[in-house]
Structure formats: structure tokens, C-alpha cells
């Protein structure tokens, strides 16, 4: 029974370390990137945009964005919501807050891990 629990804990830790953490890091980076980009657009008051689109295998094609006022932001589960810049920024700030909570949770998780590390050998709970 104990070994089974141990095994489960092991797998859970692995899952957190190998998937959740990188996902979290990526999500944080994405949101911060997006916020910076939108702020850049606002600052420069860009109306139209010409950029290069990666078709895959590092093959780029020019793309023209005639109207930059409306932006479609990924809200998760494959849904994209049409926002204006201000709405988008608001959403991004909320998401960052949420991600921060996750980070906090991981922090407590690490604490738990460390506590386990220190107390494990001495208390067989």
C-alpha cells in the first residue's frame, strides 16, 4: 500500500516537473510577450501591419494586416475571443494574476516537497 502511494507520488511529481512547470513558464512568457506587443502597438499607434508568416519549416510569406484594432486572443481550449486592445490588456492582466497563483501553488508544493525531504527520514507518517 505504501509502495503504491509512493509510486503515485512519484508519477505526480514527474508530471508536475515535466509538463506543468514548463507549461506554466510558457504561458507566463506568452502573456507577458503579448502584453508587451500590444503596448508597443498602442505606443506606436499602429493602424496597419505588415509581417512575415511562418508557413512551417522556416518558410515565410508576407502577410498584410489591414486593421489592427481587433485582436483575437487565445483563451484556452482552442477558443479565441475578439478583443480590442484595452480589453485584451485587461484579460492579459487577469490571466497573469491567475498564473501567479499557480506559481504560488507550486511554491507551496515545493515547500511541501522540501518539508518531506527534511522530515521524511525521521517520521514515518
Amino acid at each position: 500500500m505504501d509502495s503504491f502511494r509512493q509510486d503515485k507520488v512519484q508519477r505526480f511529481e514527474e508530471f508536475v516537473d515535466r509538463w506543468l512547470k514548463p507549461d506554466l513558464v510558457r504561458a507566463i512568457a506568452e502573456s507577458s510577450d503579448l502584453r508587451r506587443n500590444i503596448e508597443n502597438l498602442e505606443r506606436n499607434s499602429v493602424a496597419s501591419l505588415r509581417t512575415l508568416v511562418n508557413l512551417g519549416s522556416e518558410v515565410y510569406v508576407q502577410a498584410d494586416v489591414p486593421d489592427t484594432k481587433h485582436i483575437f486572443v487565445d483563451v484556452g481550449l482552442g477558443f479565441h475571443v475578439e478583443f480590442t486592445w484595452s480589453e485584451a490588456l485587461n484579460f492579459i492582466s487577469q490571466r497573469e494574476e491567475k498564473l501567479a497563483r499557480f506559481v504560488k501553488g507550486f511554491g507551496s508544493y515545493f515547500n511541501f516537497q522540501q518539508r518531506d525531504l527534511y522530515k521524511g527520514p525521521f517520521s514515518d507518517v
Binding site: S31, A63, V65
Partner: peptide, 22 residues
């Protein structure tokens, strides 16, 4: 048109016979 990784702008491809290849 992808804008960053989590956002898109509606747009269109132009100069469709010009490719920049790595």
C-alpha cells in the same frame, strides 16, 4: 495572422509568389 503565440489578427497573405526560406 499570428501575433505572438496566443493572439491573431485577421489579415491576408500578400506577395504570394515570394517566399523567404531559411
Amino acid at each position: 495572422v499570428p501575433f505572438g503565440k496566443a493572439a491573431f489578427f485577421p489579415g491576408r497573405l500578400v506577395h504570394t509568389n515570394e517566399f523567404l526560406v531559411l
